[in-house]
Computed example of a mutant assay.
Amino acid sequence: MKVQKFKARIELIGINPFVFVPEEILMEIFRQSGKDKGHIPVCGSVNRRSYRQTLVRYRGHWRLYINTTMLKDSPRRIGEIVAVTIQHDRKDRTVQPHPAFEKALRENKEAKKIFDGLPASRKKEIVRYISALKTPESVSRNIDRAIGFLTGGNRFVGRDTP
């Protein structure tokens, strides 16, 4: 798969730095990924620093959002021209639920039913959050909070309701 290269000016939408991907490169990414809608996983580099990101269409334009893991101090670098490489990322990005979270859902039928009815993006948000925790204590505490959230008892991941 051929890596595409371009230079672009960092722009800002809301609080989010991004670059526009040139049309001819977008067409190649669409060809590589086999789609031109939805989220498209991409990888490459910004100023020679590797990244894995998702190419998204927002307000009619495809944008590559530039976060601080891709480019240090990216919000302060608006207007800077950066060297970008990009290609479709074929690696599986599936995050498996933490085994303790799966067990908690099996034990609480009400929470499982609500979790199963959530949009895929919301399920992914919860699974990623819990899977990224490091200590057994924080995993346990946040699984309890997640189950409480799903059953209407408390807030979780910055939300009042599932």
Rank of each mutant, 00 (worst) to 15 (best):
M1F: 09
Q4N: 14
K7F: 06
K7S: 14
A8D: 03
A8M: 06
R9K: 15
I10F: 05
I10S: 06
I13T: 14
I13K: 10
I13Y: 05
G14D: 06
G14T: 03
N16H: 11
N16F: 13
P17Y: 03
P17D: 07
F18Q: 12
F18R: 12
F20Y: 13
P22M: 09
E24L: 11
I25S: 01
L26N: 06
E28S: 11
S33M: 08
K35N: 02
K35S: 04
K35G: 02
D36V: 00
H39Q: 08
H39S: 13
V42T: 09
C43T: 15
V46W: 10
R49F: 06
T54A: 10
Y58R: 14
Y58T: 12
R59V: 01
G60F: 02
H61F: 12
L64C: 10
N67I: 10
N67L: 07
T68F: 00
T68M: 12
K72I: 06
I78W: 03
G79S: 02
G79F: 08
G79W: 09
E80V: 10
I81G: 00
V82S: 08
T85Y: 07
I86G: 03
Q87P: 01
H88Q: 04
R93K: 08
R93N: 08
T94G: 02
Q96P: 00
P97A: 12
F101W: 03
K103M: 13
K103T: 13
R106P: 03
E107Q: 15
K109G: 02
K109P: 01
K112Y: 07
K112V: 00
K113W: 09
F115I: 09
L118P: 12
P119H: 13
A120H: 07
K123W: 03
K124H: 04
E125W: 00
I126N: 02
R128S: 07
I130E: 02
K134P: 00
K134Q: 06
K134N: 09
T135R: 04
T135L: 00
P136E: 03
S138H: 07
V139L: 01
V139W: 05
S140E: 13
N142V: 02
I143H: 01
I143N: 03
I143K: 03
I143S: 01
R145F: 09
R145S: 11
R145V: 10
A146W: 05
I147T: 11
T151P: 07
G152W: 15
G153D: 14
N154I: 12
R159D: 02
D160I: 08
T161D: 07
T161G: 01
